[in-house]
Amino acid sequence: MKLALCVGINDYPGVSNDLYGCRNDAADWAAALTARGFDVRTLLDSAASGLAIRTGIADLLSRTSDGDAVVITYSGHGTWVPDLDGDEPDQRDEAICPHDVAANGPLLDDELSTLFATAAPGVRVVLISDSCHSGTLTRLSRPLGDGRCPTRFLAPSTFLPLGTPTHEAVAPRVTRPRSAALLLSACRDTEYSYDATFSGRPNGAFTYVALTTLAALPPDATYRDWLRAIRAQLPSQNYPQTPALQATPTQHTWTVLA
């Protein structure tokens, strides 16, 4: 089985930081994955609540067994919250922002790791995230032809209670096991991820380059090969972001989307 969940969120009610290319990103990932034999489900805007994303990932993992593949793509805001269990060197837990983040908070990297750990042995789990996974998780936007160029940083103050500490860990440091999933992300920990436009159509800069290079890869290309191809175009002068691959040595050599 090859199962995929593609999430794209432009609309963030309760905040002033809407995005433009994320729904297109999700549609483009869904088309590419369908062409490669995946059974794809999409969650867009209001359908992409925190509960829906958590349930969607858990459902895919519960249906797979040794030899199957699961791919989750996420395009939307990222953010951070104070690290409460001491497993983050920068004292911040990175997170993605569901549609209802203002009301119900973000989905933390710790929780994603716990979800992915439920995968059966031998299942290849891949997370492709067009958002920034760092202490300053951000998407920025280039002008869309009408002068709009807002900063895409969803500040923790948007959803954290007033007075929450933001710069120091509040628990002894612990060691968390490596996530069972391979992560291909749009940028390094300290960088930003950008919205862009290509031929007048909004997309994430990373998503556009990742899919363009994917189409040109040989059938036996590995994730290391794919990252090398993406990095031939990013970072660029317009989009100074360096896509990153977080994976075990074995995962680096997996055949792309196989």
Rank of each mutant, 00 (worst) to 15 (best):
T207R: 10
R36C: 02
A186Q: 02
V170G: 08
L107Y: 11
L44G: 09
A181I: 13
A171H: 07
T114Y: 07
E111L: 12
A35P: 01
W80N: 11
L3F: 04
A155C: 04
L160E: 07
R231P: 02
I53M: 14
T255H: 06
A103C: 03
T73V: 08
T222E: 01
L61G: 03
D90I: 03
L184H: 12
G200K: 15
L214R: 13
A180F: 02
S141K: 08
L107C: 12
L154W: 09
A258D: 04
P177E: 03
L84K: 15
A103I: 04
L257Q: 07
P13N: 07
G78R: 12
L183C: 06
L183Q: 11
L211F: 03
Q246Y: 05
P240L: 12
T138G: 02
H252E: 13
T255R: 12
P156L: 13
Q91V: 08
T114V: 12
G135I: 03
S185A: 15
L144E: 08
N10G: 11
D59T: 15
D28M: 08
L160G: 12
V126H: 01
T73I: 07
R173W: 00
W226L: 12
P156V: 14
P106F: 04
F198I: 11
R228C: 06
A117Q: 03
L257T: 11
D68Y: 09
T158C: 09
D25M: 06
Q237S: 06
G204C: 06
R148C: 01
A47D: 05
A186M: 00
P243G: 14
A210G: 08
P106R: 09
L61C: 08
D59M: 11
G86T: 10
V170Q: 13
S49F: 02
T250A: 10
I128W: 01
L257R: 11
R124K: 13
A229M: 02
D18F: 05
A47Y: 02
R23C: 06
H167Q: 14
P219M: 09
D93N: 14
R201H: 10
A102C: 07
S129W: 08
P240T: 15
C97Q: 03
A169S: 07
N104A: 15
L211D: 01
R54S: 08
G122L: 05
D130M: 00
S75Q: 09
G122T: 06
D93V: 14
H99A: 13
A26W: 10
R173N: 01
C97M: 01
A95H: 04
